[in-house]
Simulated assay, not measured.
Amino acid sequence: MANRIKGITVEIGGDTTGLENSLKSVNDSLKKTQSQAQGCGNAPQAGPVQRHPPRPEAGSC
């Protein structure tokens, strides 16, 4: 029983225009995102962020 497979249908030469259009759209979006990401790498870097206000120095009050 294990050596018989039933119910598999393979279609060769089917219409793939919908798939091709979808993949083209995805590729265009990826190219746009990659070019935007490369532009972010050239942005100036910000300095360190202070998370807490500075502590008063001893004897300043």
Rank of each mutant, 00 (worst) to 15 (best):
L30F: 06
G39H: 03
N3R: 13
G47T: 09
E11F: 08
A46F: 12
N27V: 02
N42H: 12
Q38D: 10
Q34W: 00
I12W: 01
A37R: 03
Q34I: 08
I5G: 06
Q50K: 15
I5L: 15
V49K: 10
V49S: 09
Q45P: 02
V26S: 05
S29G: 15
Q36M: 06
P48K: 14
Q50M: 14
G59N: 07
V10L: 03
Q38F: 00
E20T: 11
N21W: 02
T33F: 12
I8W: 01
R51E: 11
D15L: 06
L19V: 12
R55W: 00
R51F: 09
K32A: 06
K24E: 04
G39N: 05
T33V: 14
P56H: 13
T9K: 11
A58C: 10
A37D: 00
G41R: 13
K32T: 08
G59H: 12
A2I: 06
I5E: 07
A43E: 13
K6Q: 13
T33W: 12
L19K: 11
Q36E: 14
A2Q: 09
G41K: 10
N3L: 02
Q36W: 06
N21V: 01
D28R: 05
V26H: 10
A37P: 00
I5C: 01
M1W: 02
K32M: 03
R55P: 12
G7H: 02
L19F: 11
P53G: 07
P56V: 08
G14H: 00
G47Y: 02
G47H: 01
R51I: 10
A43L: 10
Q36P: 03
K6S: 07
G18K: 13
S35K: 15
I8E: 04
L23R: 13
Q38N: 07
R55K: 11
E57H: 10
T9N: 10
G18Q: 14
K31D: 06
G47A: 10
K32Y: 04
V49Y: 07
P53L: 09
D15Q: 01
N27E: 09
Q38K: 15
A46K: 12
N27C: 02
A46W: 13
C61H: 05
E57I: 14
N27I: 00
K6A: 07
V49G: 07
L30D: 01
P53I: 07
T17K: 06
I12T: 06
A58H: 08
L30S: 04
E57V: 10
V10K: 00
S25C: 04
G59K: 11
C61Y: 07
R4E: 09
Q50S: 15
N21C: 04
P56T: 09
I12A: 05
Q36R: 15
G47C: 02
E20C: 03
G14W: 02
K24P: 02
G13W: 09
